[in-house]
Amino acid sequence: MKIAWLSDLHLVVPGSDLPRGVDPAHRAQLCLDDIRARHADADRLIITGDLIQLRHTGAYGLLKELLEDMPMPAKLLVGNHDDRAAFFEVFPHMPHELGYVQSSEVVDGHQLIYLDTVADDGKHHGQLDSVRLQWLDKVLSQCDCPALLFMHHPPAMVGIPALDKMRLNVGDQALNEILQRHKHRSIHLFCGHVHRSLSGTWGGFPYAVMTTPHVGFALDMQQHKLLPADEAPGYGVIQSLDNSIVVHTQVSSGFGSSVFVR
């Protein structure tokens, strides 16, 4: 199994002011072109939320255009910048459950679970209420194959104060309790939201967070406000190899030039 993984596109309506002076559509296109050239054999393209910049609901149409030529099916999640109602207007056939942008499927012996972590109060932190948690518990009971759980907000603290206050902090304990009941499943978590690549364990479960095609956030463990990082647009590639899950981070080859020093 092979998955191309993007997160945090932050697309804006064409002609609008650009967030932090960077064109998110151009950077997303660079990554999509790279995926098409290098990883056309991927089974899925998964984008883990913040598809648009806050209140730029017209940009969902732009996203649909960007995805038209991709050779693999795309699975889209929502994040704290997204709008479910506007999302469904443009992507009415995207699988959903109980009014949330979430679903599950089995691909090549792996259960892929897409979980909606958008907070009910519209704030930037993540939330899992009883409805979504009960759905997840039910889905995890459906098979015994390895499970890959995709969501926007990481439940783990990452050591960056400005981001830790916006993690999945409502329902996180209940989430861990559910995962513990199904730990025989070999569960891996994949999240966005942080705008940088990192990995670790949370409650004994491995998790990875993917960088963004858009502007990254700096590794600053003192500041309580987000600081931008001057980094190239990037994406991830997930593979199942010899009973293992491998996650690669790839910088778009179309961004600038490379200099190798011997």
Rank of each mutant, 00 (worst) to 15 (best):
H110R: 12
N80F: 09
C143P: 00
S186G: 10
R38D: 13
P161Q: 03
H39F: 15
D8V: 04
C143K: 06
A28P: 01
L175C: 05
V194H: 01
D144W: 14
L198C: 05
G236E: 00
S16E: 12
R20G: 03
G58E: 09
G203M: 08
L227T: 09
L54F: 15
D17C: 07
Y60K: 09
H188K: 14
H10P: 01
W5R: 00
Q102R: 15
D8T: 06
R27F: 04
L133V: 11
P146I: 10
G192T: 01
R262G: 11
D129H: 10
G256T: 07
H152Q: 02
F88C: 13
A208V: 15
V251F: 14
L115I: 11
Q127I: 13
P71S: 09
T48Q: 05
H184D: 13
I245H: 02
S252F: 04
L67W: 05
A174G: 02
Y60N: 05
L179T: 11
V170H: 03
P95Q: 06
Q173R: 11
E177W: 06
K165M: 14
E105M: 15
S253V: 14
L241T: 09
Q173F: 13
M221K: 13
R44P: 05
V12F: 04
H124Q: 12
D121P: 09
H110D: 07
S258F: 14
P161M: 09
I187C: 04
G171K: 02
E177P: 00
S252R: 01
K165R: 15
H81Q: 10
G216C: 01
V12T: 13
Q142N: 11
P206N: 08
R20H: 14
V139S: 08
F205G: 05
G256I: 09
G49S: 07
F150A: 02
H81M: 06
L67M: 04
L241V: 13
P155Q: 05
L133P: 07
M1P: 07
T201D: 08
H193C: 02
T249S: 13
F150L: 12
V90H: 12
I3H: 00
I52F: 08
I187Y: 12
I35L: 08
L163E: 10
G58Y: 12
G21N: 07
R84A: 12
T201C: 03
D121I: 15
A59G: 04
V247I: 11
V237D: 00
D220V: 13
A174N: 11
W202Q: 02
T249N: 02
L9H: 01
Q111F: 08
H224K: 10
F260I: 15
D17H: 12
L168I: 10
D50H: 08
P19K: 05
L219M: 07
F190P: 00
L54N: 07
V118N: 06
M151L: 12
G99K: 08
A4L: 01
V247T: 12
L54M: 10
K183L: 14
C191S: 09
D41L: 09
S130Y: 09
T57D: 10
F190L: 15
V106K: 06
W202L: 00
S240C: 15
D164R: 15
